[in-house]
Amino acid sequence: MTAKALTQQPIRHYGMEALRVLGALLIIFFVIFPIFWLFLTSLKNEGDTWSSSLSFTPTLSNFSQLFDGKPYDFGRMLLNTFFVSVVSALFSVPIATMAAFAFSRYRFIGKDLLLVAVLASQFLPGVVVLIPFFILFRDLQLLDTLTALIIMHLSGGIPFGIWMLKGFIDSLPVEIEEAAVVDGASEFGVLRHITGPLIMPGIVTVTVLSFIGSWNEFMFAFILTKTDAARPMMVGIMSLSGIRGTPWNLMAAASLILMVPVFILSLSIRRYFVQGLTMGAVK
């Protein structure tokens, strides 16, 4: 720091500092308040929902009411969400890891073009993919099944995983792998025992982001499912709105059940979260 900058600072120091702290507090309010309000609402009984007073008797009855199976089977729908998210991640992560390794470590014809295609395919509007698959699923009697949803989720998860994991593998020095080959490791052995463990943070990140992506997905499920047997909870919440209005206390409880796991997962991979969601725009 230079002499002039030092002498200038104390003059506005306290005023600026107070403004910055105030700004930070405003940001906290902006970010947290809607979530906090949802949390409060999820603990209210139906009567208290209409009031904005902070004094009410908290109750967990909304959560138990959601899972009593009537008239909508939220237990089943939450299980659907979980199942689709886990299976999609289990399929897409290994497939993406293999492809990312090939893209990072091997040369082949059309590689650059293929990479751009992989990146661009993540930005395909969902409806373009949905139109043919809707018809295909109808012909194959797969409409309103979990299988259909998993297939749709692979379409987004794999290119995303390839793109992110390629970044992780690129940052590893190739010499380690070459040394292993000299020592007699097979090519699969290199991926399995050398590269794989070294990019474990990347694999965990992609698995978590793939899981979150499926968990939060709405459009595919909205269009492809009809019954509680296949419907993820994200869409199922909609059926809470009836002719007699919406029971917001139940809606808030259901929303919170879907939000909290994603909060925990997002915070656990905080370091890579931004990078993942901007397709590697930021490192």
């Binding site: 879907l258 909060f263 915070l267």
Partner: peptide, 11 residues
């Protein structure tokens, strides 16, 4: 700052 983005758009 991560939290609002982690909330599903539908929610």
């Amino acid at each position: 700052l991560i939290l609002p983005f982690a909330v599903a758009p539908a929610l």
